[in-house]
Nucleic acid binder design. Structure first.
Lengths: 240, 240
DNA sequence: ATACTATTGTCTCACCGTGCGACAATGATA
DNA sequence: TATCATTGTCGCACGGTGAGACAATAGTAT
């Protein structure tokens, strides 16, 4: 079986990614399940010796989601000595017919750099890797128990995402090029986990200078046709 | 000469610390100068194989400042492939009579986890390490040219510090246990780099619920004696 | 064609935080 | 006792925000 080798990868250094998906209503996270163990974990990987850290994470994400140009942010590096569970890792290797002795570098301690990503999960075709049975979406709040310190990592990712929502959303590709104010509000509500007041939300968004209003929307809905908006290529400040 | 060995430290992983100091008026940063090279860099170090990442940073800081219980926050991990300059590193080793061949692990690529710290520089006795002539304070904005990507790291540290000022300041030990509103305002102004309006500042701080007011201050100053404040052990919310 | 319904864009109002200036209180000094 | 510098507080104007109200309108039912 093809396995990462200590010759090409930096030892003791890994990354994990918390991939948030959004599809109109709920916020979910990408979780992978290891072969024959029933264990769940965040998708992660290793960094090649001549590769930019950010590039490694993009590469891993592309392998699993077939998506390029993903919105991706590093948020914390976890370096506790007890965060890694060598026994669990060895069990995973055994379940996958990997020789723990020949690959003992995988049993050592790892410092992991954690990233979060935001993608539209309707656009994704999930692709399990060599070690995993499946990669699936789980609603935040209904996650299975995760290996290592991955639940902690998820909590920190969600906290950071909520703090930075305003600054991030424009680049996330979570919305189509043209969208209604209602669409935008749904994204905010899914991520923040609480309803937003319609009229205040609209006023705030319009005042932010991040949006450009376009033409009308006509699709068959029994009500007034809403405007379409797009993210402004060059966000304007207040005085324009 | 005593030198870190690849047997005790995690390879390819380092930390760098941006130590902000405050002494009543200006904000400064701790910069070290390498022996016989005239080159400046941030104080940093390596992580022992059985050591928590955070612990490694605390250890390094204690060696240089003799301070314990420092306010310390991780803010970013820098993982570009071109961030390290092997030629410069080799020159430093030669200037310090270190054999580059026997210590070639130091010439490879390093991913560095960056932290910032906030300390009161009146309480510090600076202690150069084995590789450095001196450790000194430099005002932000008057830094010497720094090695590697350290200027970039400093900019990011300052940005993060300013964003998180409100949440952090209580734990920084930048102020004595009891302090006046004026003292607090000076800290804010040094860090933010711009003057604050006295009365608004006072109102905002009192409303934050982070402060407790104590008795009067009597020290000889030709004016009304100001109240003394301390940080509330259990910050109260608005409704109390 | 007309009435009705659901949704949307906007307006108003009250409230709160903030920049900014004014004023009184007060400890030290002359 | 008078003066001064600094401090605590108050008032005002302004802008952002939560919350509700109302008119506009595209589709649907009658």
């Amino acid at each position: 079986m093809h396995l990462p080798s200590s010759a090409i990868y930096l030892p003791h250094l890994a990354y994990d990614s918390v991939v948030f998906g959004f599809s109109g209503d709920s916020l979910r996270i990408l979780i992978m399940e290891y072969h024959k163990t029933g264990w769940f974990a965040l998708p992660g990987g290793f960094v090649r010796r001549d590769e930019h850290l950010d590039t490694a994470v993009k590469r891993g994400l592309k392998e699993r989601t077939a998506l390029d140009n993903i919105f991706l942010r590093q948020f914390h590096t976890f370096g506790a000595t007890d965060r890694f569970d060598a026994a669990a890792m060895e069990a995973i290797m055994v379940a996958n017919d990997i020789d723990p002795v020949a690959n003992s570098w995988l049993l050592g301690r790892f410092v992991t750099v954690a990233y979060y990503a935001l993608i539209d999960y309707k656009k994704v075709t999930l692709q399990p890797d060599a070690l995993s049975d499946s990669v699936n979406w789980y609603a935040v709040g209904e996650l299975p128990p995760l290996l290592f310190d991955h639940e902690h990592i998820v909590r920190e990712a969600l906290r950071t995402l909520r703090e930075n929502l305003g600054r991030n959303l424009m680049e996330t590709n979570l919305l189509p090029p043209l969208f209604t104010m209602k669409d935008l509000q749904c994204v905010y509500e899914a991520i923040l986990g609480e309803p937003q007041h319609r009229s205040s939300f609209q006023r705030k968004m319009l005042a932010s200078g991040l949006l450009e209003r376009c033409e009308k929307l006509l699709t068959g809905a029994a009500h007034k046709a809403p405007y379409l908006y797009r993210f402004a290529p060059h966000p304007r400040s207040a005085d324009e």
